[in-house]
């Protein structure tokens, strides 16, 4: 499937796939996703029966278990509406990984149908809804970690487009930016030494860039980097892109309020 060439979403009625990490740890990221999408005129449906995209078992090589979870996900998110995921890797699980593990399965068609209407958060905003500039204000030096599952997808460019458009925000490039942070799902616990080495390198490069905020579109990367950063002396503030967009929006409204009143 060529993500670069797909038609716009069927509607602004969005089904939110919050991801298991947000469900268990990062509730504010899911909340920010809701606020940002509602700001853009979307109505959000959160199917209560959702659990996980199946990626942990898929990456661990247990495709049989993974397929069970994917089948559940397909059932939970049935319909025609676009599905939006605030995670590059969970989105990629739906439109790439699941297709791979269902290659020889009879219900491949159902997986494909879900894949076609599943969007990563920033891709949905920029390429799905056609929003190319973000209102509001975020005066800070920001390092953007392009999480790996956005390789070959429009998400990295979409995120950068939004970030660059924000008033006051200064993007700080950092060394070896194309490198993985070392999370990799179960990789982070099966290869703890290598994962840690990768994460330290990433944090050192980001620290050297002078960034005050680290932003990414994937809570997997950020949970790992944040968890390591918590044990360091100097750490950047860590935000998901949805949180940054929401905060920028709030700051912009707060700043613009007096001038509106003056008018």
């Amino acid at each position: 499937m060529h993500l670069n060439e797909r038609p716009p979403p069927a509607s602004r009625n969005v089904k939110l796939m919050a991801t298991c990490l947000c469900d268990a740890y990062f509730d504010d990221v899911a909340a920010a996703t809701v606020e940002v999408l509602e700001h853009l005129g979307c109505t959000i449906d959160f199917p209560e029966r959702q659990t996980c995209c199946g990626q942990p078992a898929f990456n661990a090589g247990d495709w049989e278990s993974s397929r069970k979870v994917v089948r559940h996900m397909v059932e939970v998110f049935e319909g025609e509406d676009p599905v939006v995921v605030p995670s590059g890797s969970c989105a990629a699980m739906v439109f790439h990984g699941a297709l791979l593990e269902f290659e020889k399965e009879p219900d491949l068609g159902a997986i494909q149908a879900l894949a076609h209407r599943t969007w990563e958060f920033s891709d949905f905003i920029v390429n799905g809804l056609g929003v190319t500039a973000w209102p509001g204000r975020f005066p800070a030096k920001v390092a953007f970690h392009r999480s790996c599952h956005t390789r070959g997808t429009p998400s990295g460019e979409a995120s950068l487009k939004l970030l660059r458009s924000i008033d006051g925000l200064e993007l700080t490039p950092f060394g070896e930016g194309e490198q993985c942070c070392g999370f990799g799902g179960t990789f982070s616990v099966t290869f703890p030494n290598i994962s840690k080495g990768m994460g330290e390198l990433k944090l050192e490069h980001i620290a050297a860039s002078g960034a005050e905020v680290l932003v990414s579109g994937d809570m997997g990367c950020l949970m790992h980097l944040g968890g390591m950063a918590a044990r360091r002396e100097q750490t950047p503030r860590i935000l998901h892109l949805a949180q940054l967009l929401r905060d920028a929006l709030r700051a912009g409204v707060a700043r613009e309020a007096p001038s509106t009143a003056a008018r």
Partner: peptide, 26 residues
Amino acid sequence: AFQAWHASRDLPPWGGGRFRRWLKRR
């Protein structure tokens, strides 16, 4: 897996269910 994780990283505080409750309130 938990020990391997915690050897070099903190886990964030558990927030299970919080988003679902927040959304209902909203």
